[in-house]
């Protein structure tokens, strides 16, 4: 089973104060660490698990500059056979343009499945995967938490709101957007990632993909970024842990919780 998995390198923003940059349309990224997008990590693992079971190859694709190859090398170390980086140059992209770029690079590859993450930690859009599926004219399902394949039957678990899950069958080829928790992404060592340098990594310039100017024109524009509006927020309890613990116990008692 040939599988294409689309991945993205994102800035790590947990436990970090974010600042808006001077354009007002981006954030200051200089001091931020980069990681693989959470959802894509699970998508790679799922691709590798399926490949190990059914054979075929896994190809990882990303859009980004040379530093973003880090996520491709991680995918290669996890078990992908080859990787493609689409270099956007100074192209401005939105979810639509990203989906067109991916389409142009993916359409001629052999695949029965295309996996993407449900969304990315940075833009939180959750649109690229299903847009890509529509460009490819293949079946699509979002928020997948289980993939079970036997013979040619593919059965999916789809996470719904409120603790419910849908089970559905799907025809191949198909695109699935993968939810976190579907598997346990394998650990790869720095050494493993270094060794993966031997695997093929192809770089394609966005300008060489044969896309029209309409394809490369964003359909949405960020007008302005801003920090969350002030809310009343929490009453902060400050002091040493003993004082904090006493305060918490007092609140519990006031709220009628029996300890």
């Amino acid at each position: 089973m040939d599988i294409v998995v689309c991945v993205k390198r994102v800035v790590l923003t947990q436990e970090v104060d974010l600042e808006i940059d001077s354009t007002g349309k981006g954030i200051k990224k200089e001091s931020l660490a980069h990681v693989i997008n959470d959802w894509d990590h699970y998508a790679i693992e799922e691709a590798v698990l399926l490949q190990k079971k059914f054979g075929g190859t896994v190809t990882a694709v990303t859009i980004g500059d040379e530093e973003d190859e880090e996520v491709l090398r991680r995918a290669l170390a996890m078990g992908a056979a080859k990787a493609i980086r689409i270099d956007p140059g100074d192209l401005a992209v939105d979810g639509f343009v990203v989906s067109r770029l991916l389409w142009a690079a993916v359409k001629d590859l052999p695949f029965e499945l295309v996996l993407t993450g449900v969304q990315a930690n940075d833009d939180n859009r959750g649109m690229v995967g299903v847009m890509l599926a529509e460009h490819l004219h293949i079946a699509h399902v979002a928020v997948v938490t289980g993939v079970d394949i036997n013979e040619k039957e593919v059965e999916l678990q789809i996470e719904l709101e409120g603790g419910m899950e849908e089970r559905a069958g799907i025809e191949l080829p198909a695109l699935l957007t993968i939810q976190t928790g579907i598997n346990e992404p394998r650990y790869v060592s720095i050494m493993g990632i270094r060794k993966a340098r031997k695997k093929p990594l192809e770089v394609i310039k966005a300008s060489e993909l044969g896309l029209s100017s309409e394809d490369l024109t964003p359909r949405t524009m960020i007008q302005e970024l801003y920090l969350p509006p002030e809310t009343e927020g929490a009453e902060m309890i400050e002091g040493d842990p003993v004082f904090v613990a006493e305060s918490i116990i007092r609140i519990l008692t006031e709220k009628g919780v029996s300890l």
Binding site: M127, V130, E134
Partner: peptide
């Protein structure tokens, strides 16, 4: 912007050519 909505709205945006913002 639910599991089901996310499963077809982006494809609808492509098919109609209408721009989309999510969530």
């Amino acid at each position: 912007h639910t599991s089901w909505g996310m499963g077809y709205a982006p494809a609808l945006s492509v098919k109609t050519g209408y721009p989309m913002a999510t969530d």
